[in-house]
Simulated scan of single mutants.
Amino acid sequence: MKLTNKLKTIALGLVMIFFQSCAVRYSFTGTNINYDEVSTFTVENFFNDSGGGPANIEQKFTEALKEYYQRNTQLELVRSNGDLQFMGAISRYTLTPQAAVSSGNANLPDRAGNMRLTISVDVEYINMTNEEENLKRSFSFFKDYDPRTSTFLDVEDELVEEIFTSIIQDIFTNTVANW
């Protein structure tokens, strides 16, 4: 029994030495960042160019993006001139009906069965160490809710948070995860 544990310890040690000596870096968060070359990131304040949304929507998005990269990478957030730089604007914030539902009464109009909140964010990503990875594109996501069971004001914060989470995951995947 003691010999088996000793062999396991030796095998684990050899595996750890192997991974430490590899030139390719892998993080269990799915990034492929070479921390020898890239150590900082900057997120400029995003703007709200959509004309809609809560008054502080741009601040919520900017802070959520910073927090996500801090949680999922070893990068240090700096005020300016980071090795990785993010900037952009919320370009779309729309609420649209998705499916008409009959009122069942000829005297009452039909109404929307579901409403859809769609948010798009234009992002410019600059990698100061590898300009081939630079990116400029729009990320968009939507969430539906049922106006018969709740008002938009009741669900807006939750919808925005869920949409931002999806958009930020897409940004992360397209920048440092490179999937």
Rank of each mutant, 00 (worst) to 15 (best):
I17T: 08
A106H: 02
C22M: 13
I119S: 04
K6W: 13
T29M: 11
E58Y: 07
K60V: 14
Y93R: 01
D36L: 11
L108I: 14
F28N: 04
A23H: 01
E132P: 00
G53D: 09
P54F: 01
T4K: 10
T31L: 02
F19Q: 02
R71Q: 11
T40P: 14
N130S: 13
N134R: 10
D122K: 02
R92L: 15
G53F: 09
R25Q: 15
A11I: 13
Y145G: 07
Q59R: 10
P147D: 11
N81R: 15
G88K: 10
T29R: 13
L75T: 09
Y69F: 15
S50C: 06
T4Q: 14
F142T: 00
V24R: 08
S80W: 12
V38G: 01
S102C: 06
R71L: 15
Q20T: 03
Q20Y: 06
N5C: 03
Q98D: 03
L108C: 03
S80A: 14
E37S: 12
A112C: 12
D144F: 11
Y93E: 06
I57Q: 04
M16A: 10
D49C: 00
E67G: 01
K60G: 00
E76H: 05
D83H: 14
S103D: 08
I10G: 01
F141K: 01
V123C: 12
G30I: 06
M87H: 03
L75S: 07
E131I: 09
M128I: 00
P54W: 00
L77C: 05
N130Y: 02
M128L: 11
R92V: 11
V15Y: 07
L12W: 08
Y93A: 02
N48R: 04
V101C: 01
L135R: 06
A106F: 08
F46Y: 13
A112E: 07
N127Y: 11
E44L: 14
R137V: 02
R116T: 11
T31I: 04
